[in-house]
């Protein structure tokens, strides 16, 4: 079980990175994160939406109402320019943290 704080901190970079591949909607985002983490990153469905809306308010992403193949209404989100910048920053920070952690771990086995 990944700690709540870490899950929360990773939500924005993950959503931005997913949307960088193309527009998507809440349900698909959750399913993809679940699949990619082999079920270990299990977001509470309802909590993704406040995150998405907050990111939209901050101008990182934009949304539009569309329809699914079966004609159901769906709200699609896509990345904006500021979102791309934010994503690059997130990647930089997470890579840095990962690098430091990996380096320290390596030293333990030397």
């Amino acid at each position: 079980m990944i700690r709540k704080e870490l899950v929360a901190a990773s939500a924005e970079p993950l959503v931005l990175s997913l949307l960088a591949k193309g527009e998507s909607y809440g349900y698909a985002i959750i399913q993809e994160v679940k699949a990619r983490s082999e079920g270990k990153l299990n977001w509470t469905d309802g909590m993704l939406y406040p995150v998405l809306h907050r990111m939209e308010h901050r101008g990182l992403i934009k949304s539009r109402w569309g329809e699914s193949e079966t004609g159901r209404k769906r709200k699609y989100y896509s990345l904006k320019k500021d979102g791309k910048t934010a994503m690059a920053k997130h990647h930089e920070h997470w890579t840095l943290i990962h690098g430091v952690l990996a380096g320290l771990k390596k030293e333990q086995y030397v």
Binding site: T44, D45, G46, M47, Y49, H53
Partner: peptide, 22 residues
Amino acid sequence: VGVENFGETHRMQSEFKKLEGH
């Protein structure tokens, strides 16, 4: 199952409430 997956309503509501600032 779908409703349960949403998690606790009051938590979701409080998260949306924070958005009011905008």
